[in-house]
């Protein structure tokens, strides 16, 4: 079961940092090193897929063959504001609050 790849396969730390920024994840330098190695190995493992000829194969986005699922344009009561804000880390009772975006 231990089919893991050689330790040499790493994703360059700058790539890891770039993805982390895109995903808005603060990583410690230890995490950066760890993920560089682990994601490198996993991606290396993914390379097995290259051996499959997939030319002309339609990507399978979903397992259901459904199409044209709609709802009617009928109003359903919204949640009370109190409920809406109940789980928010910071509010003024009316709005969600976030640190000044322009700042």
């Amino acid at each position: 079961m231990n089919q893991t790849s050689p330790q040499s396969a790493t994703l360059p730390p700058e790539e890891v940092a770039k993805i982390a920024r895109l995903a808005r994840l603060k990583l410690s330098s230890d995490e950066l090193t760890l993920y560089s190695r682990q994601i490198g190995q996993i991606l290396d493992f993914m390379n097995v897929l290259r051996e499959v000829d997939t030319s002309g194969i339609e990507p399978m986005v979903s397992a259901v063959p459904c199409e044209n699922i709609f709802r009617e344009d009928i109003v359903i009561e919204s949640l009370p504001r109190k409920t809406v804000l109940a789980n928010a880390p910071r509010t003024d009772g009316k709005f969600f609050l976030v640190p000044n975006i322009l700042g």
């Binding site: 809406v84 003024d92 009316k94 709005f95 969600f96 609050l97 640190p99 975006i101 322009l102 700042g103």
Partner: peptide, 9 residues
């Protein structure tokens, strides 16, 4: 003054 921004959804 850098007060919080408010979000209305």
């Amino acid at each position: 003054r850098g007060s919080d921004s408010q979000v209305d959804l």
